[in-house]
Nucleic acid binder design. Structure first.
Lengths: 329, 329
DNA sequence: GACCCTAGCTAAACCGGTTTATCTCCGGCT
DNA sequence: AGCCGGAGATAAACCGGTTTAGCTAGGGTC
């Protein structure tokens, strides 16, 4: 009960392997009558081309790659990536080759290997570093790639991004309009490009703004919040770089008896069910749609389109119960 | 700057392609001196075998498959699957081929295709149906597979599972011990096997227990809760089939002015950050470890081990603020 | 009628591995 | 000496496609 190969079709249709290949791929070199006969035979035999064999002779691999550099254990709580992946899938007819590794070196090694082995037709690049070697590497390999969530234009690569700078500014403006003066920020990993972008936007719109580093985990969010609230002149508003840290921060505030939002306003970057149920004011971007857009861009680049930069809509601030007027002095 | 192939190594070492293959795979047929010379050359040339080519001559594909049947949009909120995937990755050195499809037919089609094309060495089967055609299909295809989250033994397949029946019983016992008599349940999709298992456990330990169907979304959880609380004799405790529905239910209760836990106890199946921050009593299983265990089982089956059934530890009830003594009559 | 061109097809090489058949050489046994 | 066996290596077939070179028949041109 083996699956039919191109040879079986050739035999059944009474033509050569080569003719079958031409006919199935809609290329010239066979007559219309032969082509239709081949297609007929192929469909009755339930023929499916083997991607493996096809990839070997340098055609499509029918898959795209995504490598995540994370401690696997922490990954599961990051709804962002799963939303992103789900969105990507919605716009791709091919499969996604996914692997989680623990270092940047392994990541690069893996991209090279996948490409050398024709296992993928293209890749997504996420978590862009400030000076990211991948931006140079991909074009030199000739591997189609799309930067997801970078900061605009990146070398010769296509890019799908949102304006973190403008978004941060809009958050700060919102808080200033509510009368806040002492605004703090709990940042994400300093090595990531978007952290730097948000940092600089924050620095230029808030004078003497305090920034505490975090790593997206609940623990780091709680720790940073305790530190901030323990200062001589604690902030009246804190902006967190992701939802998990913000929720943890809100809990710390509650535990310390700091009322939200009357004494402290909290804003989260990236909305999620977590923020919705915690009634946190959050900067909401449609991560699912973002992933879908990235997939479309990658498909286009693989198809031979020249790389373009797509700017996502500016994230919208969804005001919920965790932000309000600054406390009277 | 092409990647070296087995031919290059053969030329550099002055032996034939066949000898190189034997040497690299640690098989007999070459002398120790030749083997070490080949290995030496291979490492200095930075040789990496092409999985694609290898898969063609019926060897390993170095990837395993997972197909999810979901509307992609809803998938992103289901932390369960992402935790599971993260756990799988932690125990696999190979990549995961992931695709989201919208129907069971496509799922089966995809499994067959992947296997026929040597794209995967084995697959995970999730969301087992009550009478699932895949259980018969996999052995007949000869495709190594592991059932994840089924109900024990499934035909000729290996299985990694948790005892939903006993878990449900333990939840009900907990509530009964608190004095609850009118206990209700918001179930998941009726087509899934574990729903049926939980249903039957619930039915046999709760007399006249009301069950409302849901589909794991927040909307369905809210709807079900409104229905239950609007009854003439509303339940004093509700058990939800996942975290998202439970949190939505807690919100509905709050909106209707029903105090939790003094008037209504809420228990969620599957713990998550959502439950932790919502202070919901939840049936906690370590989904990450569950995924890791599934990966180990699949690796073993692919390696030729005879399929075994691994029972996961019984999920543990983590009591938080949402469950308490039944209200006095 | 000789010549050329092209459409339509076939045979064969190729991709990068694995596997099998074959060949040679060397040592041990009778 | 003659025979057998096994170790060590090679050449060639194979996996299932794509691609290229080459062949054939038919039609148009001068």
């Amino acid at each position: 009960m083996k699956r039919p190969t191109i040879k079986d079709i050739a035999a059944a249709a009474g033509v050569s392997k080569g003719a079958v290949s031409l006919a199935l791929n809609g290329r010239s070199g066979v007559s219309e009558s032969t082509r239709s006969r081949v297609l007929e035979v192929a469909s009755t035999l339930g023929y499916r081309p083997s991607v493996t064999a096809r990839a070997l002779s340098s055609a499509s691999a029918d898959a795209v790659g995504l490598v995540l550099v994370r401690p696997p254990r922490a990954l599961g709580d990051e709804a962002f990536f799963f939303q992103l992946i789900a969105g990507m899938q919605s716009e791709m007819s091919c499969a996604l080759l996914l692997q989680v590794v623990s270092s940047r070196e392994e990541e690069i090694e893996l991209y090279q290997r996948w490409w050398a082995e024709h296992r993928v037709d293209g890749v997504f690049l996420v978590d862009l570093l400030v000076s990211d070697p991948r931006v140079e590497l991909m074009p030199s390999l000739g591997l189609p790639a799309v930067v997801v969530g970078g900061a605009g234009h990146h070398g010769a690569l296509a890019s799908v991004w949102a304006d973190d700078y403008a978004a941060m500014t809009s958050v700060v403006e919102h808080l200033k309009a509510l009368g806040h003066k002492r605004i703090a920020r709990v940042a994400g990993l300093a090595s990531l490009l978007h952290t730097v972008r948000r940092d600089s936007a924050f620095a230029s719109s808030v004078v003497d703004g305090v920034v505490v580093a975090g790593d997206y985990t609940a623990e780091s969010g709680a720790r940073a919040t305790r530190k901030l609230l323990g200062m001589a002149e604690p902030p009246t508003a804190i902006v967190y770089d992701n939802d998990v840290m913000a929720v943890a921060g809100a809990e710390v505030a509650a535990a310390l008896g700091v009322a939200v939002p009357s004494e402290l306003s909290i804003v989260a970057w990236d909305d999620s069910v977590l923020c919705q149920h915690g009634r946190l004011t959050a900067l909401s971007r449609d991560t699912f749609a973002f992933g879908a857009r990235a997939a479309r861009a990658l498909v286009a680049v693989i198809g031979g389109a020249s790389p373009t930069d797509v700017e996502d809509v500016l994230p919208e601030l969804v005001v919920r119960g965790s932000s309000g007027p600054a406390p009277a002095v």
